[in-house]
Design a protein around this nucleic acid. Structure first.
Lengths: 333, 333
DNA sequence: TTGAAAGCGCTAACAG
DNA sequence: CTGTTAGCGCTTTCAA
């Protein structure tokens, strides 16, 4: 239990096996260049001593870490989906992830600074709120890939959020809805594009007069508060598009408690297709962001930058997809 | 953008400032032993070159990383609360966190192995499902602290889960409830203790005949499914205690959809006091686990082990606390 | 207050 | 196939 005895080193193993350090190094990395008998002896010695290579020394020497830093918000359901997919994407390309969370007590600057210490080869930031100027400074130090936010100063992988809201509005209008409201995301990344998509789609279908944007946010409470305001105001819409699934959950709850049936009395469309939306008891119609594709692109782009490729196309836009579930239906006659 | 130019090193800064590496080293670490003028020159040189110390080399040399590894489930709301609090607790003691997530595509063994590479000085595991024998092996390599699970082979910080359920049952019985059911957590860490606490409390209040344990789990869907079964069976209880808040959310939803009013028709008590429970629109009565205290103890214990203290008391048990919110009331007359 | 030198544990050349 | 020799970038003695 008291693992006080200093950890064995390469040299210890070499001595124990009666070979040179180089051989041990080769064997530990599974590189060719050592005889089978030597290999066996080395592995046995390592096992006996309980040897485990020191990654810091290894990385210091080889100059590479094959480590991608990821900054994400621990409160954001969608970020968690991104992180989940990033692990898979990174592993497929032979990289590891170093996570740094933004929490109520740990802001984005702190989370980012933590990553820079760790000699990550690139930094992937989920929906960062850091000002563009700061991002630019960062990008001068190491490749930075921004996920799910629209900026100009770094590589960006994002969903065509305006298109997403257009799909939602078109679908609802196709069902027969006209009074379609939008509970927005305030100043959150992506919110502006989604608002614009909503407005443009309403205009395209000559529904301008029914335009109704309520200030929301990204949490359940933001959605709930906005829904309450919407109900208070009277002239209830027959359908609501919401900034994200999390906020939509709050909206659904307020509607239900107010005695409204979803979707019979009112339809609701979320955004993200986070795991929340897929839950059987929520079963939310939503606009899916393709996290698999986004994270694959993000990792590929990070690696390309690490490898020093000269790339011009800094923004990669992924198509959203409407996922029809149980919270939408034609308006009551 | 092309940050191809090799990163500046200590030596570069030293040359640029016209001093020795040692001085630069001191200055960069804010250690005493350098003249004010020298200090200024060094800092200026570092700034000009855009120098940032290489933590790998630094740690390699100084032998310490002041890094605590944390393994957690990205799907578990409560783990996210723990991680949030761990960041704060670790920072207070001068340590940093290295996160490794368990995802649907990345099991606990993989998440753990990732941490071992990183030369963390100790490992904190949130509700691990790794068998005790494996945990013991791990603990032979480095100090391991287990949070929120009851095992014998490592240090453990956990809530008195049986006591938590006793509080819930007593409170409900005090309100006048007798038919109190428990939707359990199956094989999840902590589930057995909570079941036992429920049974013992029911017995203590001579409610044995009303004992009713429904198999649940830790997700919303588990709770929803269990609630459906409960409703189908008839002889509805007047109150339900649920394994955790997340599952309770699913329970609430099924009850509401079935036309039952909470708490007028039926009371619900969750567990964890995760942020879910606190949301205005959920407002769930629950048993709080004191994450602040638990993580503080976990970090303290980790550091004590790192420092080689001989400690005997391996299990630290934290008291749970009933948080009364809006999902509980006396049973209908 | 400053500098020179030795090495942390490892990998990468190169010789044998 | 194997061993020797240099360092990676930094901290840490120890002397000046």
């Amino acid at each position: 239990m008291a693992n006080a005895e200093a950890r064995p080193t390469l040299a210890d193993v070499a001595a124990h096996a009666g070979v040179s350090k180089s051989l041990v190094s080769l064997v530990m990395r599974d590189e060719p260049g050592a005889g089978p008998e030597t290999r066996r002896r080395v592995l046995q010695a390592a096992d006996q001593l309980g040897y485990h290579p020191d990654s810091r020394a290894r990385l210091l020497r080889s100059g590479r870490s094959r480590l991608l830093g990821v900054v994400f918000g621990i409160q954001h359901a969608f970020h968690l989906d991104l992180v989940t997919a990033l692990y898979t994407a990174a592993r497929d390309r032979g990289y590891e992830l170093a996570l740094s969370a933004v929490t109520p007590d740990r802001d984005e600057a702190e989370a980012t600074a933590g990553m820079l210490q760790d000699r990550c080869e690139a930094l992937i930031m989920c929906g960062p709120r850091t000002p563009a100027a700061e991002l630019a400074k960062l990008a001068a130090r190491l490749p930075v890939i921004v996920l799910a936010r629209n900026v100009r100063v770094t590589d960006v992988i994002r969903t065509a959020d305006d298109e997403g809201l257009r799909q939602a509005v078109e679908y609802l209008n196709g069902l027969g809805h006209q009074r379609i409201a939008h509970i927005d995301g305030g100043r959150a990344p992506g919110a502006a594009d989604r608002r614009r998509g909503y407005r443009e789609a309403m205009a395209a279908h000559s529904l301008d007069t029914h335009n109704r944007i309520i200030e929301g946010g990204l949490s359940e409470e933001d959605g709930a508060a906005a829904a309450r305001r919407l109900l208070d105001e009277g002239d209830r819409p027959t359908a609501i598009t919401v900034f994200n699934d999390r906020s939509a959950t709050g909206v659904l709850d307020v509607l239900t408690r107010a005695g409204l049936r979803v979707p019979e009395d009112i339809s609701v469309v979320g955004y993200d297709d986070s795991h929340l939306a897929r839950l059987a008891h929520i079963n939310l119609t939503t606009i899916a962001q393709d996290t698999t594709e986004m994270t694959r692109l993000a990792v590929d782009r990070a690696i390309a930058r690490i490898d020093g490729s000269e790339l011009t196309n800094r923004a990669l836009i992924v198509a959203p997809q409407l996922i029809i579930r149980g919270t939408t239906a034609p308006p009551a006659a």
